[in-house]
Structures are given as structure tokens and as C-alpha cells.
Simulated scan of single mutants.
Amino acid sequence: MKTDVIPHNQIRAMYDADTIRVYQAYSDAIADSALAQGRLVSPPFKLERMTWIKPSFLWMMYRAGWGLKDEGQKRILAIDITREGFEWALAHSCPSHSPEGMSGEEYAALKQRCPVRVQWDPERDLHLQPLAHRAIQIGLSREAVRLYVNEWTCKITEMTALAHEVQALVQQGQLQKAASKLPMERAYPGQQAT
């Protein structure tokens, strides 16, 4: 039986023909206003800060500790954005760390030109332990944040209860049942960030 080997860096996400799902974790104030308005609202959301979106549910669970890590990350939101916007973000990105061989001045100039940062971190399993392949995080700043909030966002869904349910199943050792509850993420076609 052939098993598929996941490439080291591969965007995996829940998506359809028009949208792709990303995750963020927020405080009650930001989550409540976003759910009520169908988009992130400033204030309490801060447009002037870089905001990181994550297509991987389990990486978001790792980052937010299943929504139990702290008050600022207690609410898990699934944000469906346009694929066009997502691909714009990738096309206007640079690595979050200076590429090997690039001077500090060159990297500073690159960051000034690119409103989006891309970072690859180890994907996580149900125990939130690192896997061999990587999940993408995308940091939006400047015009990218405004586009995300005002043009790309199609739908916001609360995922906090699902996060707690999956965590409880993992703690009970019911890994198969926990895995069956996870969002169905698959390789994202076409443009891949590096």
C-alpha cells in the first residue's frame, strides 16, 4: 500500500472553489464583535498591528493551547477568505527571517516592499507534538491587513467549542474520534509559498 509523503513545506487547508479557511485566536471582545459584524472590527481589533493567519487547525491549537492558553487567545475563529486575497498575500510576501546570503539592508528593503510575511513551522499532531512537515503562517501588515478585514473576509465561524471537544477526546485517548472531528485539510493547489 502506497502512502503519500507530505512535502516539507506545503500549504494544507480547508478550501472550496472560492474561499480558503484560516484560523485566528482572539479575546472575547474581538471575537464577539467579529462574529456580530461578520468581519474583524477596529476597535477592538488593531488594524495597525501585524496579524497572523494560519490555515492549519492543529497549528492554531498549538499556538492557542486549544483556546485555554490565555485570555487573549481563548476564542478560536475560522475565517473564510477569498482565494484571490489569499493568493495576493502570498504574491506580496517575503520570509519572516532574512534569507541566507542577504544583507540586513537588503532584507530591510525587501520587508518595506512586502506587506506580508511567511513563516513555516512544524505542523502538529493531535498531541500538539511537532511533525516532520511544516505548516504555513502568514503575517499581514499595512495594506494587507486592511484588505483582509475589508475585502477578503467572507465568513467568520466560532470554533472554540470544537477545539475544546477535540482536546477532551485527545485527553481521553480517543484519538480516532478526535481525528474524525478535525477540519478536512488538503494540499492547496497552484501557487506555493517558499
Rank of each mutant, 00 (worst) to 15 (best):
M1S: 09
V5E: 14
P7Q: 03
I11D: 10
I11R: 13
I11T: 15
Y15A: 08
D16W: 04
A17F: 05
D18L: 04
I20F: 07
R21H: 07
Y26W: 06
A29L: 07
A29H: 05
S33A: 14
S33N: 07
L35A: 05
A36W: 02
A36H: 00
Q37Y: 11
Q37T: 05
L40T: 07
V41P: 10
S42F: 02
P44R: 02
F45T: 01
L47Y: 00
L47C: 02
M50R: 14
M50A: 14
M60E: 08
Y62C: 09
R63Y: 03
G67S: 01
K69Y: 05
E71A: 14
E71M: 12
E71C: 09
G72F: 01
G72I: 00
K74H: 11
K74G: 04
I76Q: 00
D80E: 13
R83E: 14
G85R: 01
F86T: 06
E87G: 07
S93A: 15
C94Q: 12
C94Y: 08
P95A: 15
P95F: 06
S96W: 09
S96D: 13
P99Q: 04
M102H: 06
S103A: 08
C114E: 03
P115S: 12
P115I: 10
V118W: 03
V118M: 10
W120Q: 11
E123Q: 08
E123N: 08
D125P: 10
D125I: 02
L126Y: 13
L126I: 12
L128W: 01
H133G: 02
A135L: 04
I136H: 12
I138V: 15
S141R: 14
R142D: 06
A144I: 01
R146F: 02
L147K: 05
V149T: 07
N150V: 02
W152L: 13
W152E: 05
C154W: 01
M159Y: 15
V166K: 04
L169S: 03
L169F: 07
Q174G: 00
Q174L: 09
Q176E: 13
A178R: 07
A178P: 09
A179G: 04
K181N: 06
E185M: 13
